[in-house]
Amino acid sequence: MALKTIRWLLWVPLILFVGFVALVASGLVTPSTHEIRSQLIGKPLPDFALPPALPAKPGLARVELGQGKPRLVNIFASWCVPCATESAQLATLKRAGVEIDGIAIRDRPEDLTRFLGRYGDPYARIGADRDSSVQMALGSSGVPETFVIDGAGVIRLQHVGEIRPEHVAGILAAVEAAK
């Protein structure tokens, strides 16, 4: 091989690498679509009927939601630390007139009683979701999560994670908008 061709070949790795950088840089600047958007927003709730989580409170079924008034459905559990921290915000929302139902994930009645005794009980009904099946059907991947359901039973908002004080206004607005 002539020496000249070899010299030229030596630049090939660099040229390939420049191509790689250009490709990746274009991948970086194009707006990311990795964001997870709730697929269920604007869709009616899936059908479900959960037994009561506590003997003294009714359970939660699809038919009780969407009866003309917007409601919050809060997915929580007594073993979940962030659920305890959002209790004050749930209490605020309840004082503002929002009706709240709960779905307790993989919980035991005695733990739940203790949890509600300590952090307050904003719930009108609590359904027991022992194997997370309703949680999955709602497209919720963890606890806590909060859904705003409008009067027709359509999901209007999915709030992932605990409700912090700065989120209260947004959730109230969503409830208002759902009326």
């Binding site: 790795p13 420049v18 950088v21 990311s32």
Partner: peptide
């Protein structure tokens, strides 16, 4: 973590080091 700014930072470092080394090689 998905953070494009961090990605851009590392990409610049890569361009410097790998590009530099390959240029030196060439």
């Amino acid at each position: 973590a998905v953070d494009p700014r961090r990605g851009a930072f590392i990409l610049v470092l890569l361009a410097l080091y790998i590009g530099g080394a390959l240029a030196l090689f060439a």
